[in-house]
Simulated assay, not measured.
Amino acid sequence: MQTQIKICGLKDEHTVDAAAKSGATHIGLNLYEPSPRSVPLEQAAALRMRAPAGVKVVLLLVNAEPGFTAKAIEVVKPDIVQFHGSETHQYLRVLKSAVDIEIWKAFGVKDAATLKNADQYEGAADLILFDAPAQALPGGTGTRFDWSLLNQHKHKLPWGLAGGLNPDNVGEALRQTRAILVDTSSGVESAPGIKDMDKIAAFCQAVRNHDNS
């Protein structure tokens, strides 16, 4: 089975094209304004239309108000909404019953207790994304967590891996964790919020090299 690849924090047509051409299965559009990777709602909608068939569009929200969440889903029409804040499983369960799209929930992994907390989202999320703990901003920290924690846990939900992944370490990350999806943002950048086309291609190739090994 081929590993799914998400390139997150894309801000323009060139990077959307590069991710799709390199073999990404998912692209992420960030609406969290404090992030250097954020885009306005209207731009997210335009980039969503740029994504070719077969590439799923993930909309990233952080503790967004329900009204804004509903508007963002209506305007952008993403395939998936990824919640990267402190959204509760009760809230996501209600949302999931009201929308016909996938819902992902990201967690910053500090210890085994984080993984146990993620289990509460069974029935509220379609996939859990395990990331490095938040620093000044959630996600995009360029740091990794202890991957061995994942192998010690009986997961109740499908899950993907994020946090400090780059072309040089993603193969080893997959060997250690056997994640079905890998997600990178800062790991394919030349500066915060500035994607590097060559790094995007190298990341995707490293994942495929692992898959074919």
Results as ranks from 00 to 15, higher is better:
residue 1 M to L: 09
residue 3 T to L: 08
residue 10 L to S: 00
residue 11 K to S: 13
residue 19 A to Y: 13
residue 19 A to D: 07
residue 19 A to K: 12
residue 20 A to Y: 12
residue 20 A to N: 07
residue 23 G to C: 09
residue 24 A to W: 12
residue 25 T to P: 06
residue 25 T to F: 12
residue 28 G to V: 00
residue 28 G to K: 02
residue 29 L to Y: 12
residue 30 N to W: 12
residue 31 L to R: 06
residue 31 L to K: 02
residue 32 Y to C: 04
residue 35 S to D: 06
residue 39 V to I: 14
residue 41 L to C: 05
residue 42 E to M: 08
residue 43 Q to P: 00
residue 44 A to N: 00
residue 45 A to I: 02
residue 46 A to C: 04
residue 49 M to V: 04
residue 56 K to L: 11
residue 56 K to T: 04
residue 57 V to M: 08
residue 60 L to R: 01
residue 60 L to Y: 01
residue 60 L to C: 05
residue 61 L to N: 01
residue 63 N to L: 06
residue 64 A to G: 04
residue 65 E to S: 14
residue 66 P to F: 06
residue 67 G to R: 11
residue 69 T to G: 04
residue 69 T to Y: 01
residue 71 K to E: 15
residue 77 K to T: 12
residue 77 K to L: 09
residue 84 H to I: 04
residue 87 E to F: 03
residue 89 H to S: 07
residue 92 L to C: 01
residue 93 R to I: 00
residue 96 K to H: 12
residue 101 I to A: 07
residue 104 W to C: 00
residue 105 K to E: 07
residue 106 A to L: 13
residue 107 F to R: 02
residue 107 F to D: 02
residue 109 V to F: 08
residue 111 D to P: 00
residue 113 A to Y: 00
residue 114 T to H: 01
residue 119 D to C: 03
residue 120 Q to A: 05
residue 120 Q to V: 01
residue 123 G to K: 04
residue 123 G to N: 05
residue 123 G to H: 06
residue 123 G to M: 09
residue 124 A to V: 01
residue 127 L to F: 14
residue 128 I to M: 12
residue 130 F to Q: 02
residue 133 P to I: 06
residue 135 Q to H: 13
residue 135 Q to Y: 07
residue 135 Q to D: 14
residue 136 A to Q: 15
residue 137 L to S: 07
residue 138 P to D: 09
residue 139 G to L: 09
residue 139 G to H: 06
residue 140 G to Q: 04
residue 142 G to R: 06
residue 142 G to W: 10
residue 143 T to Q: 15
residue 148 S to P: 00
residue 148 S to Q: 14
residue 150 L to Q: 05
residue 151 N to T: 09
residue 151 N to C: 10
residue 152 Q to A: 12
residue 152 Q to R: 15
residue 154 K to V: 10
residue 155 H to I: 07
residue 155 H to W: 13
residue 156 K to W: 11
residue 156 K to G: 13
residue 157 L to G: 05
residue 158 P to R: 11
residue 161 L to Q: 07
residue 162 A to I: 09
residue 165 L to G: 04
residue 167 P to S: 08
residue 173 A to H: 06
residue 173 A to P: 11
residue 175 R to K: 15
residue 179 A to E: 08
residue 180 I to C: 14
residue 180 I to R: 15
residue 181 L to R: 13
residue 183 D to N: 11
residue 185 S to C: 13
residue 188 V to H: 11
residue 189 E to T: 12
residue 191 A to D: 14
residue 193 G to C: 04
residue 193 G to F: 05
residue 193 G to R: 03
residue 196 D to S: 13
residue 201 A to M: 05
residue 202 A to N: 14
residue 206 A to M: 10
residue 206 A to C: 09
residue 207 V to Q: 02
residue 210 H to C: 08
residue 210 H to E: 13
residue 211 D to E: 15
residue 212 N to R: 14
